[in-house]
């Protein structure tokens, strides 16, 4: 029977917890791998699927760095939202496919998080028609937003802009990331084959390319129903 672990084994087992090792990994090992085996930035948002439920209650996680990174800038962003409550409710009532929308400021970033039904670009397009001016107000506060103002005149460009800033959603099944990376690099899936122990590296390098992730496509308490179905069921009109 083999001997128990010696001091060196114990030392190595603890390496991932050591600050100095983490530091070295971060400035040497990860950049090294990112240089020789880079992963492309993966597109954000929910991916198309045949299953109807996967087109319902989809998540949008839009992260927009503010132009003015100070309490003043954050307050200006807060004001845009608070001055447009009528517009926002009108949009909710008429676009008809939105479950929840939230605006959050985190570290000089304005985040717009929503749960919606159906196709992403039509969701955004319908919103521009209904409340394009609110988007214009938001865009005036964030980096690169001026490129797509007014949204009414830049519909396609704005949809791409949002898509580009919508967080990549890690698949429900983590190992599916290999196939997404292959597709983004125009390689047939699984060629060359991926070893399972490369999953941590695939994940680390992807998080280097997309620093912010949505972990999974979200978890739902009553999955598989649209806004209109729920409103109809409870007699709220749709």
């Amino acid at each position: 029977m083999a001997k128990g672990p010696g001091w060196f084994d114990r030392f190595v087992n603890d390496l991932p917890e050591r600050r100095w090792f983490q530091f070295l990994s971060n400035i040497v090992v990860v950049p090294f791998w990112a240089a020789i085996d880079p992963r492309p930035k993966l597109p954000g948002g929910a991916r198309p699927a045949v299953q109807p439920s996967e087109s319902l209650q989809r998540m949008m996680n839009l992260i927009m760095p503010l132009k003015n990174k100070s309490p003043v800038g954050r307050a200006m962003a807060a004001m845009v939202i608070s001055q447009n409550i009528d517009e926002i409710f009108t949009g909710l009532d008429n676009v008809g496919t939105i479950h929840f929308a939230r605006f959050i400021i985190i570290d000089d970033k304005l985040c717009m998080l929503s749960v919606y039904d159906g196709d992403f670009s039509n969701y955004i397009r319908d919103f521009i028609v209904a409340i394009g001016n609110v988007f214009d107000g938001i865009l005036s506060q964030v980096e690169d937003g001026d490129d797509v103002i007014p949204t009414r005149d830049n519909v396609e460009k704005f949809i791409d802009w949002v898509h580009d800033r919508d967080l990549f959603q890690l698949p429900d099944f983590a190992t599916d990331i290999f196939a997404l990376q292959d597709a983004a690099m125009n390689r047939p899936a699984g060629s060359p084959p991926h070893s399972l122990d490369e999953l941590p590296r695939a994940m680390i390098l992807q998080l280097k390319a997309n620093p912010n992730f949505s972990l999974g496509g979200g978890y739902r308490g009553y999955a598989g129903f649209s806004v209109a179905q729920i409103r109809q069921k409870f007699g709220l009109g749709w």
Binding site: V50, Q51, P52, S53, D172, G217, Y219, R220, A223
Partner: peptide
């Protein structure tokens, strides 16, 4: 969990995603 169009009902090596009706 209720399966949907596009799910392979004969393949138990693939779990279904988190969006199916439960």
């Amino acid at each position: 969990v209720i399966g949907e169009v596009g799910d392979d009902f004969a393949d138990s090596s693939r779990a279904w995603g988190s969006q199916r009706q439960r």
